[in-house]
Amino acid sequence: MNKPVENNILEVRDLEVKFFSDEGTVNAANGVNFKVPAGKSIGIVGESGCGKTVTAYSVLQLLPSTGKITNGTIKYQANDGNVIDLTNLKSESRAMRRIRGGEISMIFQEPMTSFSPVHTICNQISEAIMLHQHLSKQKARLRAIEMLELVGIPNAKRRVDEYPFQFSGGMRQRAMIAMALACNPKILIADEPTTALDVTTQAQVLKLIQGIQDELNLSMILITHDLGVIAQMVDHVYIMYLGKVVESGSVYDIFDRAKHPYTRDLIQSIPKLHGARGERVTSIAGTVPSTYKLPKGCAFHARCSDMFGNICRTETPLPIEVGSDHYVSCFLHSREEGKNNARDAR
C-alpha cells in the first residue's frame, strides 16, 4: 500500500464528493482510491450513477457549482517533478487551468454535444494549442491539421475548417481525441469514449486510442461501464459501486479471479460468444440505490446474492489484499478481519 508516489503520476485517496441541492445531499463519491502508474492505463468500471464520471471531473476540478470535494487528496506529479495535491488548487486558478488541457486532458462521452456547434473544428482545437503552447494562430492551425491527420481524419487540411455538424459521430470523436492530445498531455482521461458510437466505429476509436497511448507513452484513465472494452485496453481495473471502489486488481485478477460478488455479477452479465445454446445472460437484480440516502453496511448488500449475515447490513467492509495488488472490500473474504477492521475504524 505504501509504495512511493514517484511511480504513480496520479494518486487519488479517500476522495469524497457531495452534491448539495434542494432535494438533499447526493453522496456521489464516498472514499475513492486509485492510482495511475506513469505510462500505464487503468480502467474504472461500474454501472451508471456509481460515481465514475464525478471522480474523473474531480481530478480536473470540473464539477458543477453544486458539487464539492469534501475529503481526500488527488496527488499529481507535475511536469516539473513536483507533486501537487489538486484538491488544494482553486477550480478557476491559473495553476489549475494550466494543468487542464495542458497536462491532463479529457475526452467525453457525447461527441455530438461536446463541440460548440457554431465554431469550426480548427477554431476549437487551435484554441487549446494557443493557450498552452503559446503558438501563433497559423502554427496552431498547422498543429491542429497534424493532429487530425494523426487521428486518421482524411483530407484534414480541408476538413479542419468545417463545423462539427458536418462531421459524423465517429469523426467527431476522433477530432475530440485530436483536441485532447494536441498539447501533449501527460494523462488522458477518457470518459466513456465509445458509448455513443456504433460497434464498428467503437472498435476503430478504441484501437486509435490504444495506438496513440502506446506511441506517446501516455498515462490513461479509461472510464466505462463496459467490461468488454476494459479487457483489451488497460493494465489495472477498479470496480466502482455507489461511489466506492469495491475491487481492484490487474485485468487478469478481475476477469479470472474476481472476488467481489458485484464484479462476478458484472462479468456474468457479459454476453458470451461461445456459450451453450439456450444459456441466458444473467442480470444483476435490482438497480443502483439512490445516492441521496446510502444504505447502511455494505452498499451492495441489498442486491448481493452471496449475502451471508447481519454483518453485511450493519458494517462497512474495508479493502483486503487477496493477491498481489488485488484488493476486495467484502466480508466474504475477511469475515473475521473485516469485523475487526470495521470495529477499529469506529
Binding site: Y57, L62, E92, M106, S114, F115, L131
Partner: peptide, 24 residues
C-alpha cells in the same frame, strides 16, 4: 457539454463565457 469541454481545455471562465455560451 461543450462548456465542460472548453473548461477542460483550460480556458478562463470569462473568456469561455464570452466565446461559447454567449455566442450561442
Amino acid at each position: 457539454q461543450y462548456v465542460v469541454t472548453a473548461r477542460a481545455k483550460g480556458l478562463s471562465t470569462v473568456k469561455l463565457i464570452f466565446k461559447y455560451p454567449l455566442r450561442l
